[in-house]
């Protein structure tokens, strides 16, 4: 080859004077602009193709099948309109799912995240074995959900499990022996304890990363001004950590709404639906009872709940953090 490949930006550079990118874009010759678009399209195509194939089309198909009474074989023919959604609204199990989902979200926010934040603050200090602690607390997150589920299934095995051995004979908690996952009253708290164990390390890691971004100078300045440790945390660290916190809350809520694997492996949603989540109910109806239409309606409901939450949260809470990325249509400012 006699000359190097030229990219659109480089080609534009040659004739660039002191114009802003926008002016250049609007005044470039039509042919050149079209060619730029063609290249962009080619670069985007693989990603767009996958996005359509595995995200948008399945969503559309689920929306479509949710309007039918359909067993999953052949074409859906028995059109029921919004019948599946009416059935859903009246289903005590699904209503229970909503309530339990809310409970898990709230518990995650008031128990799991504060634990993660506390651990992160502790592990952000200079101390012996800091790296070891970080690795140990993060380790459960790396474990697959199924392995964690099987593990805790064995720990909470009634009668001979480790948990029973530990609490047996103790005051207050002794009554838990033989219950844990086996009693409708204790199954959800037990599940939540496992969830906390599994996921708090992940949030701790996010917070640790956020804490690295808090400038030591400001903390030092606050200390010189006479601020005690709590004051420094409350008035310097926490506000500067706010973007990280907002992201972590977002991930936690979305994760709770979609909770499935851990529940499926430990309790399959039982005893008597006491740990059932929307995703578990969807699986039960779709792949155990072959009521694909109804299961699709559940998945659409899950999708809507997640989407409404995401949009509202991004609009109101993440606005400052995402400025320019989502809330205001890219670089159109």
């Amino acid at each position: 080859m006699t000359e190097p490949l030229t990219l659109p930006a480089a080609a534009g550079d040659r004739r660039r004077t002191a114009r802003t990118p926008r002016e250049r874009g609007s005044r470039a010759p039509l042919g050149r602009r079209l060619r730029g678009w063609a290249a962009t399209t080619w670069f985007l195509l693989p990603a767009l193709l996958l996005f359509f194939l595995f995200v948008l089309i399945p969503i559309a198909v689920a929306l479509y099948t949710s309007l039918f009474k359909w067993g999953g074989f052949g074409r859906p023919e028995d059109f029921v309109g919004l019948g599946n959604y009416r059935k859903l609204a009246a289903d005590p199990v699904f209503r229970g799912d909503l309530w339990r989902g809310l409970l898990i979200v709230v518990l995650s926010l008031v128990v799991q995240l504060p634990i993660a934040l506390g651990t992160a603050v502790l592990l952000n200090q200079r101390m012996r074995g800091r790296a070891v602690y970080r690795a140990v607390f993060f380790a459960p997150y790396i474990l697959s959900e199924v392995i964690a589920g099987v593990l805790f299934g064995i720990i909470f095995l009634p009668g001979s499990g480790l948990a029973d051995e530990l609490v047996g004979g103790l005051p207050l908690v002794g009554g838990l022996a033989g219950k844990w996952f086996s009693d409708p009253g204790t199954a959800l708290p037990t599940l939540f304890a496992v969830m906390t164990w599994k996921y708090f390390g992940f949030h701790m890691m996010i917070y640790l990363a956020g804490l690295q971004g808090v400038p030591a100078e400001i903390l030092e300045a606050a200390a010189i001004d006479g601020a005690g440790p709590w004051r420094r945390f409350r008035s310097v660290t926490l506000p500067l950590l706010a973007p990280t916190l907002r992201i972590s809350v977002f991930l936690s809520v979305i994760g709770s709404i979609q909770l499935f694997d851990l529940v499926w492996v430990t309790t399959t949603g039982g005893p008597t639906n006491s740990t059932e989540t929307m995703a578990v109910t969807m699986f039960q109806f779709g792949f155990k009872r072959y009521q694909m239409g109804y299961a699709s309606a559940i998945s659409v409901a899950m999708f809507l709940i997640s989407m409404v939450f995401s949009l509202l949260y991004q609009r109101y809470a993440l606005r400052r953090d995402l400025e320019g990325a989502v809330t205001s249509a890219g670089g159109a400012r």
């Binding site: 095995l157 009634p158 219950k179 844990w180 996952f181 086996s182 409708p184």
Partner: peptide, 11 residues
């Protein structure tokens, strides 16, 4: 704990 016991699972 029979409510969370499997048929052929351990325990």
């Amino acid at each position: 704990g029979f409510q969370n016991a499997g048929f052929d699972a351990p325990g």
